[in-house]
Design a protein around this nucleic acid. Structure first.
Lengths: 334, 334
DNA sequence: ATTGGCAAAGCAAACGTTTGCGTCCCTATT
DNA sequence: AATAGGGACGCAAACGTTTGCTTTGCCAAT
């Protein structure tokens, strides 16, 4: 239970003032070479580690080396990959990451947003829960740098990095249509998320391009979680005139749809074709291998973190908006 | 860019001293009813949120409502589930979670351990990188509550919650043997991790129970990541006398092994049987559905967080050690 | 009328930093 | 020789809390 040493311990040991120690640590101000050496030595001997809490409290205007990352669900591989991207660049810059799951729950999102501010993080990365997220706007207004990932905010002029969801869905559904399908079921995301809407738009556009009508009974909206994928797939496949192919708007819902397909004993791709978003770990060795649109999740996280770091350095730089391209990986499921 | 209000703002507005405000917030000390009301009102009007940083700095002896969670890799579904378990109970108790990935990298683990201490978290949950992890022992010695998950420390008398890896592996390999297999390849975890070793022990014990010799050329050690599973599976399957079944010691390595199997065009379970740890999202709808041992990852996280919270409240309570049971889910891959 | 006790609230120190300003001393310029 | 300049370092305030100690006022007990 040994107390951790502080600046004053180091200062005493080195025979200098605490401000001198602080300045040698931060390379700020003029300190003589041999004084620095003495201080360094004292620090080593005491195993001194600066107290980040005190530092953040005092220097709440300067950098505190803490980033906030708020995501809907860490169990979603997309966000896990994204988180890794964020963390890797954070680590490289000696930043720690405060990671929270809001689970698509607005109250929880608000709670974590408060926590982040109360922790005075340097900046926050998050996918807003929907496009008019007042809690997020509040944070922005308070001056904390925010970068949106995956989803965006309708108002506000923020840094953001998204995936071109419209194009991803468009390509996917074009491919489905090219395989000869005319009745394509959509297992969509929440209608009020930009992601869900953009993918829906791609779905529709592919239809009009091909001169196909979109049948309202074939489009359903889930919540990006596995059970909803299963339920919707069952609904769709139970229709009097069921679709001949399914397009699932994320990986978890695709897994759910696959459950439903298995439960109904349908053969892929003979009896039912399926294409989804996100490259799940087993997707490439699935039988048949799954045709999916791969999102550059890691890169989204990486770019977002880089953008955020830049903004922290220079709050006046113009907001940049990145749109990364997803990739249709054609395998055998459609 | 409005400044966030502080205790003094509230105090001024309510016409009281800051200590009175602090005490009404924390329900400590005696404060008159109508004074409390006035303070509450002022807080509401100003939208006051306590500054967690200042609170942690000052009250570093009392609870700071921050938990540290250090995991090897968030992309590993086991740890993602575990993290959710931790986070859910943390949220329920108004704790935030500082989550870091150390990526099986000892230097990174040390860095994050330092960060956690410097952030003066209330306690830390982590799987030690190996059984004699000096960095972790240092933290323990400094008095910060630590609970080990998944893997354990050989020394130290800590709270811990593990999965019965020996039993999980034993059951799995028993089942493989029961299917008539006599040459069973092991895709093991790192030999210096308790997890890896326990699973190896189960593998061996199943062999001796069945009067089978364990062939050294059939046991290999990976690093719990996907590529190593693929490589090892290829090695094993390329043997002059290849195994007829594979046992993969975690989900990612199992996915890698499945890649190798697909690349070699082998049929499961006819030509090669396979059983693995961890229930990946697609495992149940795989063709054939994968026989796996399911680890109660979420429960591990939940229990660990509960243990940690209890220890934070009462540092003198005896260390408890939980051993959760994994479950063999027999499907069709072996 | 004095004391004691207690509830309510204020005062100020402390947590470990960062940082503006001041001081000291040394050297170079006039 | 006096002054200016600047390099090296110390002093102390400030960040927003919590908390031990004091003060105040009031009422009951002596």
């Amino acid at each position: 239970m040994k107390k951790t040493s502080s600046l004053v311990d180091v200062a005493r040991r080195a025979g200098v003032n605490i401000s001198t120690v602080s300045r040698t640590i931060n390379q700020t101000g003029k300190i003589g070479a041999e004084t620095q050496a003495r201080v360094q030595k004292a620090m080593r001997e005491l195993g001194y580690k600066p107290n980040r809490v005190a530092r953040r409290l005092r220097a709440s205007q300067s950098s505190t080396h803490l980033l906030g990352l708020i995501i809907p669900n860490i169990q979603n591989i997309f966000f896990a990959d994204l988180a890794r991207g964020v963390e890797d660049v954070a680590y490289r810059h000696n930043f720690a990451v405060l990671l929270c799951n809001y689970d698509e729950d607005e109250a929880k999102e608000r709670f974590y947003l408060d926590v982040m501010q109360a922790e005075s993080v340097d900046g926050i990365i998050l996918p807003p829960i929907h496009e008019n997220d007042p809690a997020v706007l509040n944070v922005v207004r308070s001056g904390t740098p925010v970068v949106c990932v995956d989803r965006s905010l309708s108002s506000g002029n923020l840094d953001k990095v998204e995936v071109d969801n419209h194009m991803g869905a468009l390509k996917a559904v074009e491919h489905i249509i090219a395989q000869g399908h005319k009745r394509i079921g959509l297992i969509g995301g929440p209608a009020d998320s930009s992601t869900g809407r953009e993918r829906l738009r791609g779905y529709k556009e592919a239809h009009v391009q091909a001169g196909l009508a979109v049948k309202p009974e074939l489009v359903r909206f889930g919540d990006f979680k596995q059970p909803s994928g299963r339920t919707i797939a069952h609904d769709l496949l139970g229709l009097a005139k069921p679709p001949t192919a399914l397009f699932a708007c994320n990986g978890l819902m695709m897994a759910g749809a696959l459950e439903a397909i298995a439960e109904r004993g349908l053969k892929i791709p003979k009896q039912i074709g399926i294409v989804g978003f996100d490259d799940l770990p087993l997707a490439d060795v699935f039988n048949p291998p799954l045709t999916i649109v791969r999102q550059p999740a890691y890169e989204v996280g990486r770019s977002a973190a880089e953008l955020l770091l830049k903004r922290i350095e220079d709050s006046t730089r113009p907001a940049t908006s990145l749109r990364l391209l997803p990739e249709l990986i054609v395998r055998k499921s459609c």
